[in-house]
Design a protein around this nucleic acid. Structure first.
Length: 210
DNA sequence: GCCTTGATGACG
DNA sequence: GTCATCAAGGCA
């Protein structure tokens, strides 16, 4: 698998749509991170849309514009990375037009390239890493496996020269059916917590929560 | 207080 | 084996 060349990079215009439309569209694409340690990648199998400023679940709720949320106000297709609970990171893709602070959280990958490198970075997983879903199932886990930290904040995912990119998968990945449901861990979001803006590849064993 | 995870201990 | 609970820990 690692010997097969990457597919084309997904173009910038692909991301220029509302987060709730971009989130299901990202399923089946290949997220790639190249570092001095090597290349690692996985197929996106679970996403969540965050449609600030009206969405109480979003960091940009109410139009909150800080150093952390700044990239969400810019053009689509850039990386929004934030740290959470002091020890994990979450990777998001900026959506919509500039001025509209929307993003899509990537919650799970199906590992594709650089499996050994990812397992090394995810040493905390121990023996369980062999089980489906443990290596890259979960927003914090996939960031650890790919080596994504705030150092990748703002990178253009559509630029072939960027170390962090999204490609059309090669060989192709078929998304037979998309399932949807409420987003995870936003109990504080009031009426917004039940909006079915979580999308995943139906039946895929790598999603963070079936 | 958070868009999380891994350890631990209860239970079958 | 599953499921509920909880601490860890940095940044806003």
């Amino acid at each position: 698998m690692d010997a097969i060349p990457l597919g084309p990079v997904v173009e910038a215009s692909f991301y220029r749509r509302p987060a709730a439309e971009l989130a299901p569209a990202l399923l089946g694409l290949e997220l790639v991170h190249e570092t001095p340690e090597g290349l690692a990648s996985g197929i996106i199998v679970e996403t969540e849309a965050y449609q600030g400023p009206e969405d109480r679940g979003a960091h940009s709720f109410g139009g909150r514009r800080t150093a952390r949320t700044e990239v969400m106000f810019g053009p689509a297709g850039h990386a929004y990375v934030f740290s959470i609970y002091g020890m994990h990171h979450c990777f998001n893709v900026v959506a919509a037009e500039p001025g509209k602070p929307q993003a899509v959280l990537v919650r799970a990958l199906e590992p594709r390239r650089g499996l050994a490198l990812m397992a090394r970075r995810r040493c905390a997983g121990g023996d369980r890493l062999a089980r489906p879903g443990v290596l890259t199932g979960g927003p914090g886990r996939l960031c650890q496996a790919l080596g994504i930290t705030r150092g990748q904040y703002g990178l253009p995912l559509f630029d072939p020269a960027s170390p962090l990119r999204i490609h059309y998968p090669r060989p192709p990945f078929t998304v037979a059916a998309v399932a949807r449901g409420p987003r995870i861990n936003i109990d504080y979001a009031g009426e917004w917590k039940d909006v079915p803006w979580r999308f995943w590849v139906a039946g895929n064993p790598h999603v963070s929560r079936p």
